[in-house]
Design a protein around this nucleic acid. Structure first.
Length: 874
RNA sequence: GCGAGCGUGGCGAAACUGGUAGACGCAACGGACUUAAAAUCCGUUUCCCGAAAGGGAGUGCGGGUUCAACUCCCGCCGCUCGCACCA
């Protein structure tokens, strides 16, 4: 008997599939009424090589794609490359290679790796976002959005590295310093290109309700991100301001020295509990005061220093400074409150100012306690006594009844909010408003390796779109990374052009687009990937969209998904696609990571798993023989070296073992730990399946065997048909680990059947064919080899998915556990659907039950049909 | 701080709308085959008492609802994830 040789078998079948073109999607016409299924995994960034951890995401999508194909769907399952981005430029600076060349090399390597996994991907549709054939259409889309009023320019704060002369991404700021230069990062305002996502804010929020095939977690994260809150804006008239502020103010027009201070609140009901106003450190009024007060200037600088990383702000203790300004309470002109600047007020939300109502907000209370500001409770918790209720260090933030609050006394929180707003409107001191956390999307990046923004700066005409006929605005190849800043801006000739309107000399925009733009419509391009004249054909996109199953990591739960949802709405409204809902992804699955132990050598270096081995129970460093420190189990990552290389693994064990392993054991949404023992289990399963199939071969089926079938053989047939039902259901519901367990059960049952009669041979052959089909989405190469060995024609990959024979899958008898007072005392076999009275009689007469009923009165017998019997006695 | 989720054998886990807790895999142990080992095959394996038959306990802890709770409710403890202190 020959051992299964994956090194021969796997490439053989991949070549045959490719020759037959079975993985290519059919056009709508060729599909001839087949339903469509668009299955997509989030496309990868071509960072270099892939490790086994990456394979899980693609394998899950592949199982779904293959399963749909077997069930008669016209499947689109494409792959491409999210190929623009920072790492390529870093490589250019560090290794002196061209970002394009580096990216292409990586793509070539990763394509081969993905191919070797045996994924049923339509490679004819492959593209990379750095292909000019892709991004020129992105520029067209940008121009369409511009026409639609969704594009504008605005000054925005950025992290500026004064040494490298460049804008830094948040991840490039380490401890407030530039990662490369080490210089303290400055905040600068730059004119940035913006996309008006907020135009769709309400729709993006409301539509989340209809995304019923998305994880609740992601839906929640999306709605928190959009963050709609109802409340009021309130104007607080200035009562007293420092003389310097007045002196610096212009004589007329708007001025912080005269205009009321605007504050947003969701709790206008607590206005009578107000004890101070607090402004963000970069609020215009704070800055105005800082101009003549060194202590305020120092405070602002201190906040800016801490402010680069959100985590640091979070840990920072509440701090503030009195600005020497007094305002009048909106309900009582004689009541004056101090205005402070405080580090916990965000300039980017609302108006960058709050009123502090310490008894009803923990942050305000902490702040008031720290600086000795007064406070009084105004919300009475349910059941509390107004005479004794006090607040000291813990604020009461829930709903209650308002007191100590003049005309609001006695109202519930909700009614008091409405009443307070009514009064504010009457006094012209405020109004109801809706506030969003969602901000417009800044898409400008001052970098080379991205899609150029198709705009021209003309001294005469101002900002002018590049003419559509002049697209693409292609990236120049001859760029240098030898000096700081954006290479596009340094290029000697690229930016010089003529104005499309006046024909005069003008300059190209040198900003490129955020790579999230690239990934916001790639799934549309896959529907029509080679269209030279437009981004995609409206009919094709409308046929394939939405993506029926999207699979990816939870790390994209907010931005990528939100931007894609925005793009689809905007494209719909530009008339480019028929997608009434505007929703790109019908069903979303977020998969868990592959994790692995980490190893550190005696000298503190991270070690690759293959650089270690277990010697007499202890894991040692192969280079030195010293024991290694076994660290935490973490997500596979290059930096911790806890990765298993895909090529080496496939060479040793085969793609099928990797695919089977990453889907075994752990539920797909949870992390799975990669272990040598687990690999061994998957490997021996492959061998077991092959051994069974090999031994059985392809005997002529004995069709009239059934009447003389032994009970064991019949039981195998039943189990096989039940396995069809279960695995089908499990794949449908993303329970791959359970599907795997069912396949093990089937193999165990086939192994156990020792009967060699021809009827048993028939049952065994049937079970093996079923097994082969059930494992085919998981281990496609092995399945093809088995299919052939079993004498079947054609590819198992395209064979119709098996259907369970209801007569065999159905259960005729059931085992009913008998409980006495909830404790199991025996069980009986009964016909399915047996009469309740019969079951009750059998249960009461059961020998295991009787002793427990002696001397007891049977008070009740609960019979749950086909489930359980519980006798209540006492 | 806020929000969400999770907690089941030595380990990864299963258990449909409340109905036999621990399917399946790994590890471990025993056996067969082998000169031996690996591989493979056959068993055992939640814990405690017991030679066995059998009994008792058991799904983080404490309560509750129910004939019946891993599942539902209340209160704790622990862990993980997300976040922009969102006023």
């Amino acid at each position: 008997m020959s051992r299964y040789n994956h090194r021969e078998v796997e490439p053989k079948w991949r070549a045959r599939w490719a020759d037959a073109g079975i993985d290519d999607a059919l056009s709508p016409a060729e599909a001839m009424g087949k339903p469509k299924a668009y299955v997509l995994e989030m496309f990868p960034y071509p960072s270099g090589r892939i490790h086994v951890g990456h394979s899980r995401n693609y394998t899950m999508g592949d199982v779904i794609a293959r399963f749909r194909r077997s069930n008669g769907y016209n499947v689109l399952h494409p792959m491409g490359w999210d190929a623009f981005g920072l790492p390529a430029e870093n490589a250019a600076m560090e290794k002196g290679v061209h970002p394009g060349g580096w990216t292409r090399t990586n793509i070539a390597a990763m394509r081969e790796q993905l191919r070797s996994l045996g994924l049923a991907i339509d490679w004819s549709r492959e593209f990379a976002t750095c292909d000019v054939e892709y991004y020129k259409h992105q520029q067209a889309i940008f121009l369409a959005f511009w026409k639609q009023g969704l594009v504008y320019r605005k000054k925005q704060k950025v992290n500026w590295d004064p040494v490298d002369n460049t804008v830094l991404a948040n991840e490039q700021v380490v401890d407030g310093k530039g990662w490369r230069s080490g210089a303290p990062v400055e905040t600068r305002e730059l004119e940035q290109w913006m996309l008006r996502v907020t135009a769709y804010g309400d729709d993006l929020l409301d539509a989340i309700g209809a995304l019923d095939k998305w994880p609740d977690k992601v839906r929640l994260m999306q709605s928190n991100w959009i963050g709609k809150s109802q409340g009021a804006r309130i104007w607080w008239p200035l009562a007293r301001v420092p003389a310097e502020l007045k002196a610096n103010a212009p004589a007329s027009g708007q001025s912080h020295a005269r205009d009321p201070l605007e504050v947003f609140t969701t709790r206008p009901d607590t206005l009578f509990g107000a004890s101070f106003l607090a402004l963000a450190p970069d609020h215009p009024l704070t800055k105005a005061v800082a101009e003549f007060r060194p202590d305020v200037a120092a405070f602002v600088a201190e906040c800016a220093r801490l402010g680069t990383s959100e985590a640091e702000i979070e840990k920072a203790e509440k701090a503030g400074i009195d600005l020497g300004i007094r305002v009048k309470h909106p309900f009582d002109d004689s009541w004056e409150l101090p205005v402070w600047a405080a580090n916990f007020v965000l300039s980017t939300y609302g108006s960058g100012a709050i009123f502090g109502s310490p008894a009803g907000d923990q942050r305000d209370l902490d702040f008031a306690n720290k600086y000795g500001l007064p406070f009084k409770p105004v919300v009475l918790p349910p059941g509390a006594d107004p005479a004794t209720h006090t607040i000291t260090t813990e604020a009461f933030t829930d709903d209650g009844v308002i007191y100590n609050s003049g005309f609001l006394d006695g109202l519930t929180t909700q009614r008091a909010i409405a009443r307070a707003i009514e009064e504010l409107v009457k006094l012209k001191r405020g109004e109801a408003t809706t506030q969003y956390r969602l901000r417009d999307w800044g898409v400008s990046r001052q970098r080379y390796w991205g899609c150029p923004i198709p705009a021209i700066h003309c001294a005469k005409c101002g900002l002018v779109p590049v003419a559509e006929t002049a697209l693409p605005a292609a990236l120049p190849d001859d760029v240098k990374f030898d000096k700081p800043g954006n290479p596009l801006a340094h290029h000697p000739s690229w930016k010089h052009t003529t104005c499309p309107q006046c024909g005069g000399r003008a300059e190209r925009e040198t900003d490129t687009l955020d790579t999230f733009v690239d990934s916001s419509w790639y799934f549309l391009r896959f529907t029509d990937p080679h269209d030279a004249s437009k981004p995609f054909d409206k009919k094709l996109a409308s046929y394939w969209m939405p993506v029926d199953q999207y699979v990816g990591g939870i790390e994209h739960a907010v931005l990528h998904l939100l931007y894609s949802r925005f793009f689809c709405r905007a494209l719909r409204d530009c008339g480019m696609i028929d997608l009434p809902s505007g929703e790109p992804f019908k069903s979303l699955f977020t998969q868990g990571m592959v994790v692995h132990e980490t190893y550190k050598s005696a000298s503190g270096q991270w070690l690759l798993p293959e650089e270690t081995d277990i010697r007499s129970g202890v894991r040692v460093d192969l280079a030195t023989g010293h024991p290694v420190e076994v660290g935490d189990i973490e997500k596979m990552s290059k930096s911790k070296k806890n990765v298993v290389d895909l090529d080496a693994f496939i060479q040793d064990f085969g793609a099928d073992v990797a695919r089977w392993f990453v889907l075994s054991d752990s539920p797909p949404e949870r992390d799975v730990e990669w272990t040598a023992a687990g690999v061994k289990g998957a490997w021996s399963f492959v061998q077991r399946v092959w051994t069974l199939v090999e031994a059985h071969g392809a005997p002529a089926p004995n069709v009239d065997a059934a009447p003389t079938m032994s009970p064991d053989a019949h039981a195998l047939r039943q189990l096989a048909h039940r396995a069809i039902e279960s695995v089908t259901d499990d794949i449908e519901n993303f329970r791959f680990n359970v599907a795997v367990a069912r396949c093990y059960e089937l193999v165990n049952a086939i192994t156990k059947l020792k009967d060699t009669s021809s009827a048993a041979q028939f049952a065994r052959g049937e079970a093996l064919r079923i097994l082969t089909q059930l494992i085919s989405p998981f281990m496609p190469h092995l399945a093809e080899e088995c299919w052939e060995r079993l004498g079947m024609k054609g590819f198992v990959a395209v064979a119709p998915w098996p259907k369970a024979d209801p007569a065999l899958a159905a259960r005729t008898t059931v085992t009913l556990p008998i409980q006495v007072n909830g404790k199991k005392r025996g069980e009986i076999e009964a016909a399915k659907g047996a009469a309740e009275a019969d079951v009750r009689a059998l249960a009461l007469a059961h020998p295991g039950v009787k002793p427990f009923l002696e001397g007891q009165t049977v008070r009740k017998v609960v019979v749950v049909p086909d489930r359980i019997v519980n006798i209540v006695a006492g």
